[in-house]
Design a protein around this nucleic acid. Structure first.
Lengths: 148, 148
DNA sequence: CTAGGACTTCGAGTCGACTCTAGATCAAGT
DNA sequence: ACTTGATCTAGAGTCGACTCGAAGTCCTAG
């Protein structure tokens, strides 16, 4: 399989992962790469397909607000090799719990926003269709902060 | 109605809203209060029940990642009084869209985490129930980064 | 041979949202 | 009168996660 070491430059990896080259170097400094990135003769970074895979996973974990230190912790477990699957699982479970909590919280907020949207739509509906603009749409006060 | 001006201290408001006194002063400096907070004879802040209502709404909007500048913008519209309901509605719609997008993104991430959790549970199940620990649970590589 | 563009390092700067410090003032209790 | 604890202001510090700048290297195409 000659495909196993495709040798990507930092720019290509940036294109594929959506991370900036700055961020890729930053992640390496911060120690979130599973293996220190290889270099070519001129000292330039050479990424493997595995590196891209890990970085892609990183973007997803980051998108779900996993802090960099936790990402580093997870990376450490992977680097240590087989035998610590329980620890990896525990870490993922913790993260899962956090994400679920976050979604629940956001859903609650969404309910409130929807409620407020409804209030304002009522106000606008009540003043628009009658004629030009009603003198004072009864109940407008409710749309401020005191409603919820 | 004597209940209409209950006069709360900053500490009491902090207790009720879950915001710190620092944050309450910070919010005021940043101009997110609908009306500049009243003061007593000694220059101390006196909050009304309406202020608490607005701050509570703020905590919910912040919890759904509305940036302070947008919160300020919304506050401005409220302070201007009736007549700009369409603008308020548009702002809330934008925020709603953002929150929905965020939830969708998080849900996608959750799917991936669940997938990985499943992979690790398989590995552990396969090595645990047989005896002590299997020499090398076939397929462990899949649990690293290359799986997804 | 040279100009362009991608790459290198190191360190500093930015941004958002707090969070804290220091020193002063005030209200209430002993 | 004195102490305690909450509050005040102005301004500085923190934190996480980038983001950028300067100055230099290296490869490729014209």
């Amino acid at each position: 399989m000659p495909d196993n070491a495709p040798s990507l430059s930092i720019g290509q990896v940036a294109d594929r992962t959506g991370l900036s080259v700055h961020t890729l170097r930053f992640y390496e400094r911060e120690g979130v790469m599973v293996n220190p990135v290889r270099r070519d003769a001129g000292g330039r970074r050479v990424y493997s397909e595995d590196d891209v895979g890990w970085l892609t996973l990183c973007t997803i974990l980051r998108a779900s607000d996993m802090p960099l230190p936790v990402l580093r912790e997870y990376m450490e477990l992977i680097r240590q090799g087989e035998g610590n699957e329980e620890e990896r699982l525990a870490l993922l479970h913790r993260h899962r719990r956090d994400v679920v909590a976050r979604i629940r919280r956001l859903t609650e907020c969404l309910d409130l926003v929807d409620h407020k949207v409804g209030v304002y739509e009522d106000i606008i509906d009540r003043s628009a269709p009658g004629h030009g603009c009603g003198p004072r749409p009864a109940g407008a006060r409710d749309a401020r902060q005191e409603s919820v």
